[in-house]
Amino acid sequence: MSVYQNNEINEEETSRTLSLVVDNQPGTLARVIGLFSGRGYNIESLTVTEIDNRRHLSRISLVTRGTSMTIEQIKSQLLRIVPVHLVRDLTLEGPFIKSELALIKLVADGANRVEALRIAETFRARTLDVTLGSFVFELTGRPNKIDAFIGLMKSLGDIEISRTGVSAISRGDKTETKVLEQIKLT
């Protein structure tokens, strides 16, 4: 962008969690991601799956960073994308829940196996697979809880990680049902 100089007031960048409802069509996700790469915005985490199989709607949970001017710009730009129906700024709206699922494989032996099971219990991780030399744990929760769990496992042996990224929803009794009902069935 050939903007002459950054006119932004020196404001700290903060992390924001956005929640989008989009048409589950080929190309929608590419447009959302293309917007971030094309305009130089950050994506810290992104998850997407269909949430309404009659209207073919998907939810995209997205964590990004920026100053408030940048975030406002990101939200307006997202809304310009035709198959994007709803853009909610959960961070701005109020209390919300952020959760993630992680699968962690640990290869360890001896005392480290005992320690791993003890830590897994403390974190309420489920053990999905066991061999004589390895475990696969499943853990859900806030990203920093998962980070902490991974940190501990790392010190016990060789690990492999698969994480889903953040899924988010607001607290309280408000839902989007009314708004989404305006979307015609296709």
Binding site: Q5, N7, E72, Q73
Partner: peptide, 23 residues
């Protein structure tokens, strides 16, 4: 032109059909 010297003493009103053009 240079943004930090653009109409420095003005209040600005912007009408646009595209929200992303504003700010």
């Amino acid at each position: 032109g240079r943004l930090n010297a653009f109409a420095p003493k003005s209040k600005k009103i912007h009408i646009d059909i595209d929200k992303s053009s504003i700010n």
